[in-house]
Write a protein that binds this DNA or RNA. Structure first.
Lengths: 147, 147
DNA sequence: GCTTGACTTCGAGTGCACTCCAACCCGGAC
DNA sequence: GTCCGGGTTGGAGTGCACTCGAAGTCAAGC
């Protein structure tokens, strides 16, 4: 087979290609309850829809921002169970959003310290760091004297 | 012992308290080659210096931004081996900085999509999201119709 | 001098998220 | 009609970063 399932949906290889996930991971997500009822074609092969693609994009974002598998599963269960629990979904997403906001700020602070360290070493090596002007002011910790 | 090691340095419990790491993790980091020769007191107990504290702060930042243990070990080895390899340290730090910058942008993009989703559900539930004005414009993916 | 509690080492165990394997099936090309 | 590529399942294995347990040491308090 080369890819005949187009009228019925995308193959797992095509979805892997488009999402950047492996076929292994796509099957694992489904087994673990993260997906929304993926259909099968006549041969028993998975036939993904555009809606599935959108869902995979969403859960990939949630994973990439640190949401654990089991929480994505909880969310998927709510979506699969149909309407009526939008409030609960909203609570879950808001909690995650807050965590991501905090994580973003923390990472920005760490990045600042790392930039400072880079500028220190660039100066030590006698090289002018191309980004030196971005980090002109002093930072408190990550003391350069420690390595 | 309650804490007599002050003239000779900080105990592992004190360092755990100040850094937010556990004593287990501090020992693990040392065993795994992430530390810079932590001294011992008469009883064979670890006696951390202020320099050690600064170093722990740094490696905590590196870990929190996703640097793997084995790369921190490489960096620690360079620092332990003394001067002369500042160029290599700089390369390592710059590579990490670039990854963190990319990661920060990616996370910001994901956060945008999640904010949009939250606004969608807030509207669906009939609640006005307090942050709705922050995300007024349309976003492409994470289609609300998918859950 | 015995208990107590914080430390020590070494090694094993845990949780998470994949990642891979073996055995099998199916449809199309030769 | 057989071969091949790409799918299927269930279950086992991997890598990472801790995390814990067992057995022992040491110094201070009673």
């Amino acid at each position: 087979m080369t890819q005949q399932a187009h009228s019925t949906g995308l193959t797992i290889a095509e979805v892997a290609e488009r999402t950047g996930l492996t076929a292994h991971t796509l099957r694992y997500y489904e087994r673990d309850g993260l997906m929304l009822e993926v259909g099968r074609n006549g041969a028993g092969h998975r036939a993904y829809t555009e809606r599935d693609l959108g869902w995979i994009t969403l859960i990939t974002r949630l994973r990439a921002t640190g949401m654990p598998i089991r929480e994505i599963r909880r969310y998927a269960e709510m979506v699969r169970s149909g309407g009526g629990n939008e409030g609960a979904r909203l609570d879950l997403l808001r909690a995650h959003r807050d965590r991501v906001r905090a994580q973003l700020e923390e990472t920005a602070a760490h990045l600042d310290a790392i930039e400072f360290k880079v500028a220190y070493y660039a100066a030590a090596v006698g090289e002018t760091d191309p980004d030196a002007e971005l980090i002109a002011q002093q930072r408190r910790d990550a003391p350069a004297a420690t390595g």
